[in-house]
Design a protein around this nucleic acid. Structure first.
Lengths: 337, 337
DNA sequence: AGACTTATCGAAATCGATTTCGAAGACGGT
DNA sequence: ACCGTCTTCGAAATCGATTTCGATAAGTCT
């Protein structure tokens, strides 16, 4: 019953289909790709046989012809995946989940390794590259890309002419402060990361400015420290000593917020009744584990990934975008405010 | 001075190098690949010119010839990256960081999507596939892989003949219990995840068995619940009521351990003086943020990824491995025990 | 019937790198 | 001087799918 399947070695090639259908490989190709000069009867027969044989065209042969590999590289310094995973998921959506493959490369923060990975991606003829990092500091642009489209996601390029997609951190900080102001809070403190981190500096500056516009000051002054719970606990202890009647704390990260809330609880302050707390990052595992769950700023990193991928596709299709695209943040309100 | 670089359109091909060197493409190929029938003088000249032109052989042409794409798919249901990222990093190491590319595919837990992703990977002629999930429950094997090498990492296949690499959870649980016993603890409780989760069941069974071997019982009985801090807090409150003189809690996850430690502190018990706590997962961000830092079991997921990749490479080289490989866990001792 | 259009198909070239195999030249030995 | 050997190189085939273009057959029109 079963036909001899034409030399059963290896995967099915177009010539196998052609042989089984009694036509040439050219006709099979035209039938499968909807070209016009094939009769309806032949087309149907070819389609049926191709389906029965589970024929899958060899992507590499096509790529060799077209010069497009239908794959992009994702070069990231974020080994933990905190920022690279959302970028990747967003990009995957935009790239048609399978249409264009994402090749993941972790540089482990080693420039030499990054150069090697880039070399490998070029060798592999990727159609474009998304560069990602866990810092919002601008990073040195890739060198030696030889005209290949590159989009920087989350961590922008130092060259403003490059195509970068970043989070709107000032907007995020403003959303948080305005939310607290709307809730009637007047004595708002700010605990954040290291002063030298761009993210910390920007969020602090924006917070200070927005409060001044409301005729207020950062209660207790901006507290720079580390992105850790430990620092959150310590900072809130200091704050409660220096300005005991604060009624809100805006934190530079969810981890800090966690420490702050622990500190407040241990000091006998209730959240949100006595003190409201707002975080930054919307790191679900942190924000939903606090007591009560944490109101926080979400930078929409998946959207950044999606837009980066869209811009990359545009650049691949010869309509490159230059400059920086800013993605608005969003406030996720839970019970801590 | 600069030679005309032979029709400056697009990337450098081997024929461009051949033209510039005044030899044939065949000779260039042999020179670059260290074949023997090229004179030393010619080889050096070709090498110099290829370097000057920054020639990079087209990987797709080679793949078309050899039938190998030098890429593998990583098909995962773990969108959060908690388990897929370490697997990916380990695999990247084993795959020579760039030699073999990793194509990341997230199935979003949707079987239909998984089938599409698989189809795309096959179409792309990947040399093999690593399947990953966030559960340790056995999962249905991939169907329609047509002889392509597949290795299941962390989340094994239901078919015991498939090649799976999993964590040694019983070993992990034993390490934790023995560590507590060595520390002189006698009244050891166990708080873990949902009873229907394989991981929870295995860890509980192993814990019970190991304690019995020491002539002890699980203090207060195994407490099944959820993988959350909330559950950890609640469970420890119950435990302190039911068996107030417990001196250790082994937790099924680091998140539970966090809740347990918070509960203990609020009940006035000190860790580790009054009660020792051991977690499971070594999720750094959790384990290092507790007070004091958490002793916990590390399943060596990166090693699982590395071994999975090695087995996959073996299978690609026609020496397939069948059956399940178990990777030992390791105890990371911090200050909570 | 002869000229012309249209529909349908296949042979061959193409993409870029590699490999096989034959050709040509250099050289040594008798 | 002639034959054989060894070295060095290049023409051509190969991988698989697509596309161009020419060939053939069928049908249409005067």
């Amino acid at each position: 019953m079963a036909p001899p399947e034409a030399g059963s070695t290896g995967p099915i090639k177009i010539s196998d289909v052609a042989l089984a259908a009694g036509v040439s490989a050219a006709t099979v190709s035209k039938a499968l790709n909807g070209r016009s000069d094939v009769s309806a009867a032949t087309r149907e027969r070819v389609l049926a046989i191709a389906a029965r044989l589970q024929f899958r065209p060899n992507a590499m042969a096509g790529s060799l012809r077209t010069g497009r590999s239908f794959s992009v590289g994702l070069l990231t310094t974020d080994s933990f995946g905190r920022f690279s995973i959302p970028v990747m998921l967003g990009a995957e959506d935009a790239l048609g989940s399978g249409e264009v493959a994402i090749i993941f490369c972790d540089t482990r923060d080693d420039p030499e390794r990054e150069a090697r990975q880039l070399e490998a991606l070029l060798h592999r003829q990727v159609d474009g590259i998304i560069v990602n990092g866990r810092r919002t500091e601008a990073r040195p642009p890739l060198i030696g890309t030889r005209g290949l489209p590159v989009v920087y996601a989350f961590s922008p390029s130092q060259d403003p002419a490059d195509c970068s997609v970043i989070a709107d951190e000032p907007n995020g900080a403003r959303l948080a402060v305005e939310h607290l102001l709307t809730g009637g809070r007047k004595r708002i403190a700010h605990v954040t990361g290291p002063r030298r981190h761009r993210s910390a500096a920007i969020r602090a500056t924006t917070t200070t400015a927005r409060l001044r516009r409301a005729g207020l000051r950062v209660d207790g002054g901006v507290r720079f420290g580390a992105w850790t719970e430990e620092w959150g606990r310590q900072a809130v202890a200091d704050l409660l000593r220096d300005s005991p009647d604060l009624d809100a704390v805006f934190c530079g990260s969810d981890q800090i917020a966690r420490g702050v809330m622990d500190g407040l609880r241990e000091a006998g302050r209730s959240v949100p009744d006595d003190v409201a707390v707002v975080g930054f990052d919307n790191w679900e595992v942190m924000a939903t584990a606090t007591r009560p769950p944490l109101t926080t700023v979400d930078m929409n990193i998946d959207v950044i990934g999606r837009i980066a991928a869209q811009l990359l596709l545009g650049a691949i299709d010869r309509s490159p975008t230059s400059g920086t695209t800013v993605v608005p943040a969003r406030l996720v309100v839970r019970q801590s405010s």
